[in-house]
Design a binder for these strands. Structure first.
Length: 573
DNA sequence: AGTTAGACTTAGTAAAACAGTA
DNA sequence: TACTGTTTTACTAAGTCTAACT
Protein backbone atom coordinates (compact mmCIF):
# COMPACT_ATOMS: atom_id res chain seq x y z
CA UNK A 1 0.00 0.00 0.00
CA UNK A 2 2.84 2.31 0.68
CA UNK A 3 4.01 1.72 -2.81
CA UNK A 4 0.73 2.09 -4.59
CA UNK A 5 -0.33 5.03 -2.48
CA UNK A 6 -3.79 3.66 -2.34
CA UNK A 7 -4.33 3.53 1.39
CA UNK A 8 -5.42 0.59 3.47
CA UNK A 9 -8.81 0.12 1.90
CA UNK A 10 -7.71 -1.64 -1.22
CA UNK A 11 -7.94 -5.36 -1.08
CA UNK A 12 -7.87 -5.99 -4.75
CA UNK A 13 -7.02 -9.45 -6.03
CA UNK A 14 -3.68 -8.40 -7.47
CA UNK A 15 -2.22 -7.49 -4.15
CA UNK A 16 -3.95 -9.55 -1.56
CA UNK A 17 -0.95 -11.76 -0.96
CA UNK A 18 2.79 -11.42 -1.30
CA UNK A 19 4.88 -14.48 -2.00
CA UNK A 20 8.51 -14.94 -1.11
CA UNK A 21 10.99 -14.19 -3.86
CA UNK A 22 10.41 -16.31 -6.96
CA UNK A 23 7.29 -18.15 -5.80
CA UNK A 24 4.47 -17.59 -8.24
CA UNK A 25 1.64 -19.63 -6.73
CA UNK A 26 0.72 -22.17 -4.07
CA UNK A 27 -2.06 -24.01 -5.83
CA UNK A 28 -2.57 -24.60 -9.54
CA UNK A 29 -5.15 -26.85 -11.12
CA UNK A 30 -6.17 -27.10 -14.78
CA UNK A 31 -7.54 -29.50 -17.38
CA UNK A 32 -4.52 -29.58 -19.69
CA UNK A 33 -4.44 -28.45 -23.31
CA UNK A 34 -6.87 -29.01 -26.17
CA UNK A 35 -5.19 -30.77 -29.07
CA UNK A 36 -5.66 -29.95 -32.73
CA UNK A 37 -8.35 -32.09 -34.35
CA UNK A 38 -6.93 -35.19 -36.08
CA UNK A 39 -6.38 -35.10 -39.81
CA UNK A 40 -9.39 -35.99 -41.92
CA UNK A 41 -8.38 -37.53 -45.24
CA UNK A 42 -9.75 -35.94 -48.39
CA UNK A 43 -12.80 -37.44 -50.08
CA UNK A 44 -11.92 -39.88 -52.87
CA UNK A 45 -13.03 -37.48 -55.59
CA UNK A 46 -10.52 -34.79 -54.64
CA UNK A 47 -7.43 -35.50 -56.70
CA UNK A 48 -3.80 -34.65 -56.59
CA UNK A 49 -1.90 -34.70 -59.87
CA UNK A 50 1.74 -35.32 -60.43
CA UNK A 51 3.17 -34.59 -63.84
CA UNK A 52 -0.35 -34.43 -65.21
CA UNK A 53 -1.40 -37.81 -63.82
CA UNK A 54 -3.71 -38.56 -60.90
CA UNK A 55 -1.84 -39.79 -57.87
CA UNK A 56 -3.25 -41.15 -54.64
CA UNK A 57 -1.15 -40.02 -51.71
CA UNK A 58 -0.56 -41.78 -48.43
CA UNK A 59 -2.39 -40.17 -45.52
CA UNK A 60 0.71 -38.53 -44.07
CA UNK A 61 1.90 -37.15 -47.40
CA UNK A 62 -1.62 -36.03 -48.22
CA UNK A 63 -1.96 -34.11 -44.97
CA UNK A 64 1.18 -32.11 -45.65
CA UNK A 65 0.09 -31.56 -49.25
CA UNK A 66 -3.16 -30.04 -48.00
CA UNK A 67 -1.19 -27.49 -45.99
CA UNK A 68 0.43 -26.31 -49.20
CA UNK A 69 -2.83 -26.46 -51.15
CA UNK A 70 -4.54 -24.24 -48.59
CA UNK A 71 -1.87 -21.59 -49.11
CA UNK A 72 -1.81 -21.73 -52.89
CA UNK A 73 -3.26 -18.25 -53.30
CA UNK A 74 -0.61 -16.77 -51.10
CA UNK A 75 2.35 -15.08 -52.68
CA UNK A 76 4.82 -16.96 -50.57
CA UNK A 77 4.09 -20.31 -52.18
CA UNK A 78 5.90 -18.80 -55.17
CA UNK A 79 9.01 -17.96 -53.15
CA UNK A 80 11.96 -20.17 -53.76
CA UNK A 81 12.96 -20.61 -50.11
CA UNK A 82 9.41 -21.42 -49.12
CA UNK A 83 9.10 -24.03 -51.87
CA UNK A 84 12.48 -25.55 -51.16
CA UNK A 85 11.84 -25.88 -47.43
CA UNK A 86 8.37 -27.21 -47.97
CA UNK A 87 9.44 -29.80 -50.49
CA UNK A 88 12.27 -31.02 -48.33
CA UNK A 89 10.00 -31.51 -45.32
CA UNK A 90 7.17 -32.93 -47.38
CA UNK A 91 9.43 -35.61 -48.80
CA UNK A 92 10.22 -36.73 -45.26
CA UNK A 93 6.55 -37.59 -44.82
CA UNK A 94 6.29 -39.58 -48.04
CA UNK A 95 6.46 -43.34 -48.46
CA UNK A 96 9.56 -44.53 -50.29
CA UNK A 97 7.43 -45.06 -53.37
CA UNK A 98 6.07 -41.54 -53.27
CA UNK A 99 9.57 -40.26 -52.69
CA UNK A 100 10.84 -41.88 -55.82
CA UNK A 101 7.95 -40.64 -57.93
CA UNK A 102 7.62 -37.09 -56.63
CA UNK A 103 10.94 -35.47 -57.36
CA UNK A 104 9.92 -31.99 -58.43
CA UNK A 105 7.52 -29.61 -56.73
CA UNK A 106 6.79 -27.79 -59.98
CA UNK A 107 5.24 -30.97 -61.36
CA UNK A 108 2.79 -31.12 -58.46
CA UNK A 109 -0.69 -29.88 -59.13
CA UNK A 110 -2.60 -28.91 -56.00
CA UNK A 111 -5.29 -26.87 -57.74
CA UNK A 112 -8.06 -29.41 -57.34
CA UNK A 113 -7.33 -29.71 -53.65
CA UNK A 114 -7.23 -25.95 -53.37
CA UNK A 115 -10.60 -25.62 -55.07
CA UNK A 116 -12.05 -28.16 -52.68
CA UNK A 117 -10.93 -26.14 -49.67
CA UNK A 118 -12.28 -22.95 -51.15
CA UNK A 119 -15.63 -24.63 -51.68
CA UNK A 120 -15.50 -25.87 -48.09
CA UNK A 121 -14.92 -22.43 -46.66
CA UNK A 122 -17.65 -21.07 -48.93
CA UNK A 123 -20.00 -23.73 -47.58
CA UNK A 124 -19.03 -22.76 -44.06
CA UNK A 125 -20.06 -19.21 -44.73
CA UNK A 126 -23.36 -20.37 -46.16
CA UNK A 127 -24.22 -22.51 -43.16
CA UNK A 128 -27.64 -22.03 -41.62
CA UNK A 129 -28.10 -20.11 -38.42
CA UNK A 130 -28.72 -23.30 -36.48
CA UNK A 131 -25.51 -24.91 -37.68
CA UNK A 132 -23.52 -21.81 -36.81
CA UNK A 133 -25.16 -21.71 -33.42
CA UNK A 134 -24.20 -25.31 -32.83
CA UNK A 135 -20.55 -24.59 -33.57
CA UNK A 136 -20.64 -21.58 -31.30
CA UNK A 137 -22.05 -23.63 -28.48
CA UNK A 138 -19.40 -26.29 -28.95
CA UNK A 139 -16.70 -23.62 -28.73
CA UNK A 140 -18.25 -22.24 -25.60
CA UNK A 141 -18.32 -25.68 -24.05
CA UNK A 142 -14.64 -26.13 -24.86
CA UNK A 143 -13.82 -22.75 -23.36
CA UNK A 144 -15.81 -23.51 -20.27
CA UNK A 145 -14.11 -26.83 -19.73
CA UNK A 146 -10.52 -26.05 -20.76
CA UNK A 147 -10.34 -22.26 -20.82
CA UNK A 148 -10.03 -21.72 -17.09
CA UNK A 149 -7.80 -22.86 -14.29
CA UNK A 150 -7.61 -22.33 -10.58
CA UNK A 151 -4.58 -20.49 -9.35
CA UNK A 152 -4.54 -20.11 -5.63
CA UNK A 153 -7.99 -18.87 -4.69
CA UNK A 154 -9.05 -17.67 -8.09
CA UNK A 155 -10.58 -19.05 -11.20
CA UNK A 156 -8.53 -17.53 -13.99
CA UNK A 157 -8.91 -17.37 -17.73
CA UNK A 158 -6.22 -19.14 -19.77
CA UNK A 159 -4.80 -17.22 -22.72
CA UNK A 160 -4.14 -20.03 -25.23
CA UNK A 161 -5.44 -23.40 -24.14
CA UNK A 162 -5.44 -24.81 -27.66
CA UNK A 163 -2.27 -26.46 -28.98
CA UNK A 164 -1.09 -24.96 -32.25
CA UNK A 165 -2.19 -27.16 -35.14
CA UNK A 166 0.34 -28.54 -37.62
CA UNK A 167 0.97 -26.52 -40.77
CA UNK A 168 3.61 -24.77 -42.79
CA UNK A 169 5.75 -22.28 -40.95
CA UNK A 170 5.65 -18.76 -42.25
CA UNK A 171 7.96 -16.47 -40.39
CA UNK A 172 7.72 -12.74 -40.91
CA UNK A 173 9.87 -10.92 -43.39
CA UNK A 174 12.52 -12.77 -45.27
CA UNK A 175 12.68 -15.82 -43.07
CA UNK A 176 15.12 -18.59 -43.98
CA UNK A 177 12.80 -21.27 -42.55
CA UNK A 178 9.59 -20.26 -44.29
CA UNK A 179 7.68 -23.24 -45.66
CA UNK A 180 9.07 -25.76 -43.19
CA UNK A 181 6.65 -28.25 -41.70
CA UNK A 182 5.40 -27.41 -38.25
CA UNK A 183 4.78 -30.86 -36.89
CA UNK A 184 1.75 -32.06 -35.00
CA UNK A 185 2.09 -31.86 -31.23
CA UNK A 186 1.20 -35.04 -29.37
CA UNK A 187 0.51 -35.59 -25.66
CA UNK A 188 3.92 -37.28 -25.51
CA UNK A 189 5.47 -33.84 -26.29
CA UNK A 190 3.64 -32.10 -23.50
CA UNK A 191 4.90 -31.09 -20.08
CA UNK A 192 2.15 -30.40 -17.58
CA UNK A 193 2.78 -28.02 -14.71
CA UNK A 194 0.37 -27.96 -11.77
CA UNK A 195 0.43 -28.34 -8.04
CA UNK A 196 0.90 -31.69 -6.37
CA UNK A 197 -2.35 -31.50 -4.48
CA UNK A 198 -4.39 -30.64 -7.56
CA UNK A 199 -6.38 -32.93 -9.79
CA UNK A 200 -3.80 -33.74 -12.44
CA UNK A 201 -5.15 -33.48 -15.99
CA UNK A 202 -5.58 -36.80 -17.79
CA UNK A 203 -3.85 -37.35 -21.14
CA UNK A 204 -6.09 -38.39 -24.06
CA UNK A 205 -6.94 -42.12 -23.97
CA UNK A 206 -4.03 -44.31 -25.04
CA UNK A 207 -1.51 -41.52 -24.54
CA UNK A 208 0.90 -40.28 -21.91
CA UNK A 209 2.27 -36.88 -21.03
CA UNK A 210 5.97 -36.34 -21.54
CA UNK A 211 6.20 -35.15 -17.95
CA UNK A 212 4.14 -33.82 -15.10
CA UNK A 213 5.96 -31.33 -12.92
CA UNK A 214 5.11 -29.15 -9.99
CA UNK A 215 7.18 -26.00 -10.38
CA UNK A 216 5.66 -23.03 -8.59
CA UNK A 217 8.55 -20.76 -9.59
CA UNK A 218 7.05 -20.42 -13.07
CA UNK A 219 3.64 -19.27 -14.26
CA UNK A 220 3.00 -21.62 -17.19
CA UNK A 221 0.56 -24.53 -17.16
CA UNK A 222 1.70 -26.46 -20.21
CA UNK A 223 4.80 -26.41 -22.40
CA UNK A 224 6.23 -28.18 -25.42
CA UNK A 225 9.20 -27.80 -27.72
CA UNK A 226 8.45 -26.52 -31.17
CA UNK A 227 10.37 -28.02 -34.09
CA UNK A 228 11.18 -25.00 -36.27
CA UNK A 229 13.51 -23.09 -33.94
CA UNK A 230 13.61 -25.69 -31.18
CA UNK A 231 12.19 -23.16 -28.76
CA UNK A 232 9.73 -23.78 -25.98
CA UNK A 233 6.09 -22.78 -26.27
CA UNK A 234 3.83 -22.23 -23.30
CA UNK A 235 0.26 -22.10 -22.24
CA UNK A 236 -0.12 -19.22 -19.81
CA UNK A 237 -2.85 -17.14 -18.22
CA UNK A 238 -4.89 -14.37 -19.74
CA UNK A 239 -3.80 -10.73 -19.21
CA UNK A 240 -6.78 -10.26 -16.91
CA UNK A 241 -5.29 -12.70 -14.41
CA UNK A 242 -3.79 -11.65 -11.14
CA UNK A 243 -0.38 -12.96 -12.03
CA UNK A 244 -0.19 -10.99 -15.29
CA UNK A 245 -1.82 -7.86 -13.93
CA UNK A 246 0.54 -7.64 -11.03
CA UNK A 247 3.54 -8.02 -13.31
CA UNK A 248 2.16 -5.34 -15.59
CA UNK A 249 1.71 -2.98 -12.68
CA UNK A 250 5.27 -3.67 -11.57
CA UNK A 251 6.52 -2.83 -15.03
CA UNK A 252 5.00 0.64 -14.88
CA UNK A 253 6.28 1.19 -11.37
CA UNK A 254 9.80 0.46 -12.62
CA UNK A 255 9.29 2.97 -15.42
CA UNK A 256 8.14 5.53 -12.85
CA UNK A 257 11.29 4.95 -10.86
CA UNK A 258 13.24 5.67 -14.02
CA UNK A 259 11.39 8.97 -14.28
CA UNK A 260 12.96 10.00 -10.98
CA UNK A 261 16.52 9.36 -12.12
CA UNK A 262 16.39 9.81 -15.86
CA UNK A 263 17.97 13.27 -15.74
CA UNK A 264 20.93 11.93 -13.86
CA UNK A 265 21.28 9.05 -16.30
CA UNK A 266 21.12 11.45 -19.23
CA UNK A 267 23.85 13.62 -17.77
CA UNK A 268 25.90 10.53 -17.18
CA UNK A 269 25.76 9.25 -20.74
CA UNK A 270 26.53 12.67 -22.12
CA UNK A 271 29.67 12.64 -20.00
CA UNK A 272 30.47 9.16 -21.25
CA UNK A 273 30.49 10.39 -24.86
CA UNK A 274 33.87 11.86 -23.93
CA UNK A 275 35.26 8.75 -22.26
CA UNK A 276 38.73 7.45 -23.10
CA UNK A 277 37.32 3.97 -23.33
CA UNK A 278 35.75 3.09 -26.64
CA UNK A 279 33.46 0.58 -24.95
CA UNK A 280 32.06 3.28 -22.66
CA UNK A 281 31.52 5.68 -25.55
CA UNK A 282 29.68 3.05 -27.56
CA UNK A 283 27.53 2.21 -24.59
CA UNK A 284 26.71 5.88 -24.08
CA UNK A 285 25.78 6.51 -27.72
CA UNK A 286 23.66 3.38 -27.85
CA UNK A 287 21.87 4.38 -24.69
CA UNK A 288 21.24 7.82 -26.18
CA UNK A 289 19.51 6.16 -29.15
CA UNK A 290 17.50 3.87 -26.89
CA UNK A 291 16.40 6.83 -24.82
CA UNK A 292 15.82 9.39 -27.56
CA UNK A 293 14.42 7.10 -30.26
CA UNK A 294 12.88 4.35 -28.16
CA UNK A 295 14.88 1.69 -30.02
CA UNK A 296 14.80 -1.90 -28.80
CA UNK A 297 17.88 -3.36 -27.11
CA UNK A 298 18.93 -5.52 -30.06
CA UNK A 299 20.10 -8.95 -28.93
CA UNK A 300 22.37 -10.99 -31.17
CA UNK A 301 20.62 -13.54 -33.34
CA UNK A 302 21.96 -16.66 -34.89
CA UNK A 303 22.57 -16.14 -38.56
CA UNK A 304 20.46 -18.28 -40.88
CA UNK A 305 18.00 -19.17 -38.15
CA UNK A 306 15.82 -16.09 -38.38
CA UNK A 307 15.09 -13.09 -40.57
CA UNK A 308 17.87 -10.52 -40.60
CA UNK A 309 16.55 -7.86 -38.24
CA UNK A 310 18.34 -5.64 -35.74
CA UNK A 311 17.86 -3.45 -32.69
CA UNK A 312 20.12 -0.81 -31.18
CA UNK A 313 23.09 -2.90 -30.02
CA UNK A 314 23.05 -5.01 -33.18
CA UNK A 315 22.96 -2.09 -35.65
CA UNK A 316 25.43 -2.44 -38.46
CA UNK A 317 27.35 0.25 -40.32
CA UNK A 318 25.07 -0.22 -43.33
CA UNK A 319 22.03 0.79 -41.26
CA UNK A 320 22.97 4.42 -40.75
CA UNK A 321 24.15 7.28 -42.92
CA UNK A 322 25.82 10.36 -41.56
CA UNK A 323 24.97 13.78 -42.97
CA UNK A 324 27.05 16.66 -41.61
CA UNK A 325 24.27 18.78 -43.02
CA UNK A 326 20.88 17.85 -44.39
CA UNK A 327 17.88 20.05 -45.24
CA UNK A 328 19.30 22.95 -43.26
CA UNK A 329 19.99 20.84 -40.17
CA UNK A 330 23.38 19.95 -38.78
CA UNK A 331 24.62 16.47 -37.81
CA UNK A 332 21.79 14.35 -39.13
CA UNK A 333 21.78 10.56 -38.75
CA UNK A 334 19.67 8.67 -41.25
CA UNK A 335 18.47 5.31 -39.92
CA UNK A 336 17.22 2.62 -42.24
CA UNK A 337 16.92 -0.90 -40.92
CA UNK A 338 14.49 -3.75 -40.33
CA UNK A 339 13.42 -4.13 -36.71
CA UNK A 340 11.24 -6.67 -34.93
CA UNK A 341 8.83 -8.47 -37.26
CA UNK A 342 10.85 -7.02 -40.15
CA UNK A 343 9.12 -3.70 -39.77
CA UNK A 344 11.22 -1.00 -41.38
CA UNK A 345 12.58 1.77 -39.20
CA UNK A 346 13.31 4.86 -41.24
CA UNK A 347 14.16 8.14 -39.57
CA UNK A 348 16.35 11.17 -40.07
CA UNK A 349 17.43 12.54 -36.74
CA UNK A 350 19.55 15.56 -35.89
CA UNK A 351 21.89 14.56 -33.07
CA UNK A 352 24.37 16.35 -30.89
CA UNK A 353 27.77 17.05 -32.37
CA UNK A 354 29.54 14.70 -29.94
CA UNK A 355 27.27 11.83 -30.90
CA UNK A 356 27.91 12.51 -34.55
CA UNK A 357 31.67 12.60 -34.10
CA UNK A 358 31.56 9.38 -32.10
CA UNK A 359 29.56 7.66 -34.81
CA UNK A 360 32.15 8.71 -37.38
CA UNK A 361 34.78 7.21 -35.14
CA UNK A 362 32.87 3.93 -34.68
CA UNK A 363 32.50 3.60 -38.44
CA UNK A 364 36.13 4.17 -39.30
CA UNK A 365 37.76 1.32 -41.23
CA UNK A 366 34.66 -0.80 -41.13
CA UNK A 367 32.72 -2.65 -43.81
CA UNK A 368 28.98 -2.04 -44.24
CA UNK A 369 28.18 -5.42 -42.69
CA UNK A 370 30.29 -4.80 -39.57
CA UNK A 371 28.69 -4.04 -36.23
CA UNK A 372 28.37 -0.34 -35.48
CA UNK A 373 28.88 -0.96 -31.77
CA UNK A 374 31.54 -3.65 -31.96
CA UNK A 375 32.44 -3.39 -28.27
CA UNK A 376 28.87 -3.59 -27.04
CA UNK A 377 26.04 -6.04 -26.60
CA UNK A 378 22.77 -6.08 -24.68
CA UNK A 379 24.27 -7.93 -21.78
CA UNK A 380 26.97 -5.28 -21.25
CA UNK A 381 24.44 -2.52 -21.64
CA UNK A 382 21.94 -4.03 -19.23
CA UNK A 383 24.60 -4.71 -16.65
CA UNK A 384 25.51 -1.04 -16.75
CA UNK A 385 21.85 -0.03 -16.48
CA UNK A 386 21.42 -2.30 -13.51
CA UNK A 387 24.15 -0.29 -11.77
CA UNK A 388 22.36 2.97 -12.52
CA UNK A 389 19.04 1.83 -11.12
CA UNK A 390 17.78 -1.41 -9.69
CA UNK A 391 15.64 -3.25 -12.19
CA UNK A 392 16.62 -0.96 -15.05
CA UNK A 393 17.00 -2.59 -18.47
CA UNK A 394 16.89 -1.23 -22.00
CA UNK A 395 13.20 -1.89 -22.50
CA UNK A 396 12.25 0.23 -19.51
CA UNK A 397 13.20 3.29 -21.55
CA UNK A 398 10.59 2.39 -24.12
CA UNK A 399 7.94 2.04 -21.45
CA UNK A 400 9.02 5.23 -19.74
CA UNK A 401 9.21 7.34 -22.89
CA UNK A 402 5.93 5.99 -24.21
CA UNK A 403 4.04 6.70 -21.01
CA UNK A 404 5.55 10.10 -20.36
CA UNK A 405 4.81 11.08 -23.96
CA UNK A 406 1.18 10.10 -23.58
CA UNK A 407 0.88 12.14 -20.42
CA UNK A 408 2.51 15.21 -21.97
CA UNK A 409 0.53 14.94 -25.17
CA UNK A 410 -2.75 14.59 -23.31
CA UNK A 411 -1.96 17.72 -21.35
CA UNK A 412 -1.06 19.57 -24.49
CA UNK A 413 -3.84 18.41 -26.78
CA UNK A 414 -6.90 18.22 -24.57
CA UNK A 415 -9.06 21.29 -24.99
CA UNK A 416 -11.44 21.69 -22.02
CA UNK A 417 -14.09 23.27 -24.25
CA UNK A 418 -14.19 20.37 -26.69
CA UNK A 419 -17.06 17.93 -26.70
CA UNK A 420 -16.49 14.24 -26.06
CA UNK A 421 -15.75 13.10 -29.63
CA UNK A 422 -13.22 15.90 -30.04
CA UNK A 423 -11.57 15.00 -26.76
CA UNK A 424 -11.36 11.40 -27.88
CA UNK A 425 -9.71 12.55 -31.07
CA UNK A 426 -7.14 14.29 -28.89
CA UNK A 427 -6.62 11.08 -26.98
CA UNK A 428 -6.10 9.15 -30.17
CA UNK A 429 -3.63 11.75 -31.34
CA UNK A 430 -1.67 11.45 -28.12
CA UNK A 431 -1.78 7.66 -28.52
CA UNK A 432 -0.62 8.13 -32.11
CA UNK A 433 2.38 10.20 -31.07
CA UNK A 434 3.47 7.24 -28.96
CA UNK A 435 2.85 4.71 -31.72
CA UNK A 436 5.01 6.81 -34.04
CA UNK A 437 7.75 7.02 -31.43
CA UNK A 438 7.71 3.26 -30.99
CA UNK A 439 7.40 2.65 -34.74
CA UNK A 440 4.24 0.58 -34.45
CA UNK A 441 3.09 0.13 -38.00
CA UNK A 442 0.43 -1.82 -39.78
CA UNK A 443 -0.36 -2.66 -43.36
CA UNK A 444 -2.95 -0.15 -44.57
CA UNK A 445 -6.30 -1.94 -44.34
CA UNK A 446 -7.32 -3.45 -47.69
CA UNK A 447 -10.54 -1.49 -47.68
CA UNK A 448 -8.99 1.77 -46.60
CA UNK A 449 -9.58 3.89 -49.71
CA UNK A 450 -13.10 2.66 -50.10
CA UNK A 451 -13.95 3.23 -46.49
CA UNK A 452 -12.60 6.79 -46.67
CA UNK A 453 -14.78 7.46 -49.71
CA UNK A 454 -17.83 6.11 -47.92
CA UNK A 455 -17.17 8.31 -44.98
CA UNK A 456 -16.72 11.34 -47.22
CA UNK A 457 -20.05 10.75 -48.91
CA UNK A 458 -21.65 10.46 -45.50
CA UNK A 459 -20.15 13.80 -44.61
CA UNK A 460 -21.41 15.37 -47.84
CA UNK A 461 -24.90 14.05 -47.21
CA UNK A 462 -24.79 15.37 -43.67
CA UNK A 463 -23.75 18.79 -44.93
CA UNK A 464 -26.72 18.93 -47.23
CA UNK A 465 -28.97 17.83 -44.44
CA UNK A 466 -27.57 20.63 -42.33
CA UNK A 467 -28.19 23.20 -45.05
CA UNK A 468 -31.79 22.03 -45.32
CA UNK A 469 -32.29 22.18 -41.59
CA UNK A 470 -30.91 25.71 -41.51
CA UNK A 471 -33.22 26.82 -44.28
CA UNK A 472 -36.14 25.38 -42.41
CA UNK A 473 -35.09 27.13 -39.25
CA UNK A 474 -34.84 30.42 -41.10
CA UNK A 475 -38.29 30.18 -42.56
CA UNK A 476 -39.70 29.08 -39.23
CA UNK A 477 -38.17 32.14 -37.65
CA UNK A 478 -39.67 34.40 -40.28
CA UNK A 479 -42.97 32.68 -39.80
CA UNK A 480 -42.84 33.16 -36.04
CA UNK A 481 -42.09 36.83 -36.43
CA UNK A 482 -45.29 37.29 -38.42
CA UNK A 483 -47.57 35.01 -36.46
CA UNK A 484 -46.28 35.60 -32.95
CA UNK A 485 -48.10 32.58 -31.55
CA UNK A 486 -46.98 29.76 -29.24
CA UNK A 487 -47.12 27.11 -31.88
CA UNK A 488 -44.73 28.81 -34.27
CA UNK A 489 -42.38 29.70 -31.40
CA UNK A 490 -42.25 26.07 -30.47
CA UNK A 491 -41.54 25.15 -34.04
CA UNK A 492 -38.56 27.52 -34.09
CA UNK A 493 -37.22 25.89 -30.94
CA UNK A 494 -37.48 22.38 -32.31
CA UNK A 495 -35.86 23.43 -35.60
CA UNK A 496 -33.04 25.03 -33.67
CA UNK A 497 -32.50 21.80 -31.82
CA UNK A 498 -32.52 19.89 -35.08
CA UNK A 499 -29.81 22.13 -36.52
CA UNK A 500 -27.72 21.67 -33.42
CA UNK A 501 -28.11 17.94 -33.52
CA UNK A 502 -27.06 17.75 -37.15
CA UNK A 503 -24.13 20.04 -36.55
CA UNK A 504 -22.94 17.70 -33.85
CA UNK A 505 -23.37 14.67 -36.06
CA UNK A 506 -21.41 16.37 -38.82
CA UNK A 507 -18.64 17.28 -36.45
CA UNK A 508 -18.47 13.71 -35.23
CA UNK A 509 -18.13 12.43 -38.77
CA UNK A 510 -15.44 14.93 -39.63
CA UNK A 511 -13.49 14.04 -36.53
CA UNK A 512 -13.80 10.39 -37.46
CA UNK A 513 -12.47 11.09 -40.95
CA UNK A 514 -9.45 12.97 -39.63
CA UNK A 515 -8.72 10.28 -37.11
CA UNK A 516 -8.92 7.52 -39.67
CA UNK A 517 -6.79 9.30 -42.23
CA UNK A 518 -4.06 10.00 -39.70
CA UNK A 519 -4.16 6.39 -38.62
CA UNK A 520 -3.76 4.78 -42.00
CA UNK A 521 -0.46 3.03 -41.42
CA UNK A 522 -0.16 3.33 -37.68
CA UNK A 523 -1.14 0.65 -35.19
CA UNK A 524 -2.35 2.09 -31.90
CA UNK A 525 -3.10 -1.19 -30.20
CA UNK A 526 0.41 -2.30 -29.37
CA UNK A 527 1.33 0.80 -27.41
CA UNK A 528 -2.05 0.94 -25.74
CA UNK A 529 -1.70 -2.65 -24.58
CA UNK A 530 1.97 -2.80 -23.72
CA UNK A 531 3.55 0.62 -23.21
CA UNK A 532 1.08 3.13 -21.85
CA UNK A 533 0.53 3.15 -18.13
CA UNK A 534 -3.24 2.61 -18.07
CA UNK A 535 -3.58 4.80 -15.00
CA UNK A 536 -2.77 7.82 -17.17
CA UNK A 537 -5.73 7.03 -19.39
CA UNK A 538 -8.02 6.25 -16.48
CA UNK A 539 -7.12 9.53 -14.81
CA UNK A 540 -7.67 11.44 -18.03
CA UNK A 541 -11.11 9.87 -18.45
CA UNK A 542 -12.05 10.79 -14.90
CA UNK A 543 -10.78 14.31 -15.24
CA UNK A 544 -12.74 15.05 -18.40
CA UNK A 545 -15.80 12.94 -17.76
CA UNK A 546 -15.09 10.56 -20.62
CA UNK A 547 -16.62 7.11 -20.11
CA UNK A 548 -13.79 4.59 -19.87
CA UNK A 549 -15.58 2.42 -22.45
CA UNK A 550 -14.69 5.04 -25.08
CA UNK A 551 -11.00 4.37 -24.54
CA UNK A 552 -10.86 0.71 -23.55
CA UNK A 553 -13.03 -2.08 -24.91
CA UNK A 554 -14.14 -4.97 -22.75
CA UNK A 555 -10.97 -7.03 -23.03
CA UNK A 556 -8.83 -4.00 -22.35
CA UNK A 557 -10.90 -3.08 -19.33
CA UNK A 558 -10.39 -6.60 -18.00
CA UNK A 559 -6.66 -6.40 -18.55
CA UNK A 560 -6.44 -2.99 -16.90
CA UNK A 561 -8.90 -3.67 -14.10
CA UNK A 562 -6.14 -2.96 -11.57
CA UNK A 563 -5.60 0.51 -13.01
CA UNK A 564 -9.28 1.35 -13.34
CA UNK A 565 -9.66 0.46 -9.71
CA UNK A 566 -6.58 2.30 -8.56
CA UNK A 567 -6.20 5.58 -10.43
CA UNK A 568 -7.88 8.84 -9.48
CA UNK A 569 -8.14 11.89 -11.68
CA UNK A 570 -4.99 13.44 -10.21
CA UNK A 571 -2.80 10.43 -11.00
CA UNK A 572 0.65 11.43 -12.22
CA UNK A 573 2.84 8.93 -14.02
C1' DA B 1 33.18 -13.51 -20.53
C1' DG B 2 30.68 -16.13 -23.56
C1' DT B 3 26.88 -19.41 -24.56
C1' DT B 4 22.47 -21.33 -24.21
C1' DA B 5 17.95 -22.66 -22.29
C1' DG B 6 14.08 -20.98 -20.42
C1' DA B 7 10.43 -17.78 -19.28
C1' DC B 8 8.11 -14.17 -20.20
C1' DT B 9 6.54 -9.73 -23.01
C1' DT B 10 5.59 -7.60 -27.29
C1' DA B 11 4.02 -7.82 -32.15
C1' DG B 12 1.30 -7.73 -36.57
C1' DT B 13 -2.09 -10.27 -39.19
C1' DA B 14 -5.99 -13.26 -40.20
C1' DA B 15 -10.34 -14.87 -38.81
C1' DA B 16 -14.47 -14.28 -36.35
C1' DA B 17 -17.94 -11.59 -34.33
C1' DC B 18 -20.57 -7.73 -34.35
C1' DA B 19 -23.16 -3.69 -35.77
C1' DG B 20 -25.23 -0.87 -39.04
C1' DT B 21 -27.70 -0.58 -43.32
C1' DA B 22 -30.01 -1.62 -47.78
C1' DT C 1 -32.77 -10.75 -43.69
C1' DA C 2 -28.65 -10.56 -46.15
C1' DC C 3 -24.82 -7.99 -46.79
C1' DT C 4 -20.91 -5.12 -45.71
C1' DG C 5 -17.69 -2.67 -43.26
C1' DT C 6 -15.62 -2.32 -38.62
C1' DT C 7 -14.07 -3.99 -34.31
C1' DT C 8 -12.56 -7.64 -31.51
C1' DT C 9 -10.39 -11.86 -30.74
C1' DA C 10 -7.34 -15.61 -31.91
C1' DC C 11 -3.17 -16.84 -33.27
C1' DT C 12 1.57 -17.47 -32.96
C1' DA C 13 6.02 -15.33 -34.24
C1' DA C 14 9.64 -12.59 -32.54
C1' DG C 15 11.53 -10.03 -29.32
C1' DT C 16 13.85 -9.12 -24.20
C1' DC C 17 16.13 -10.58 -20.29
C1' DT C 18 17.75 -13.78 -16.51
C1' DA C 19 20.14 -17.52 -14.84
C1' DA C 20 22.70 -21.56 -15.26
C1' DC C 21 26.54 -23.37 -17.10
C1' DT C 22 31.23 -23.64 -19.13
Amino acid sequence: HLECGFGGACLAVWEEERYPEGIKWKFLEHKGPVFAPPYEPLPENVKFYYDGKVMKLSTKAEEVATFFAKMLDHEYTTKEIFRKNFFKDWRKEMTSEEKSTITSLSKCDFTHMSQYFKAQSEARKQMSKEEKQKIKEENERLLKEYGYCVMDNHKERIANFKIEPPGLFRGRGNHPKMGMLKRRIMPEDIIINCSKDSKIPAPPPGHKWKEVRHDNKVTWLVSWTENIQGSIKYIMLNPSSRIKGEKDWQKYETARRLKKCVDKIRNQYREDWKSKEMKVRQRAVALYFIDKLALRAGNEKEEGETADTVGCCSLRVEHIKLHPELDGQEYVVEFDFLGKDSIRYYNKVPVEKRVFKNLQLFMENKQPEDDLFDRLNTSILNKHLQDLMEGLTAKVFRTYNASITLQQQLKELTNPDDNIPAKILSYNRANRAVAILCNHQRAPPKTFEKSMMNLQSKIDAKKEQLADARRELKSAKADAKVRRDEKSKKSVESKKKAVQRIEEQLMKLEVQATDREENKQIALGTSKLNYLDPRISVAWCKKWGIPIEKIYNKTQREKFAWAIDMAEEDYEF
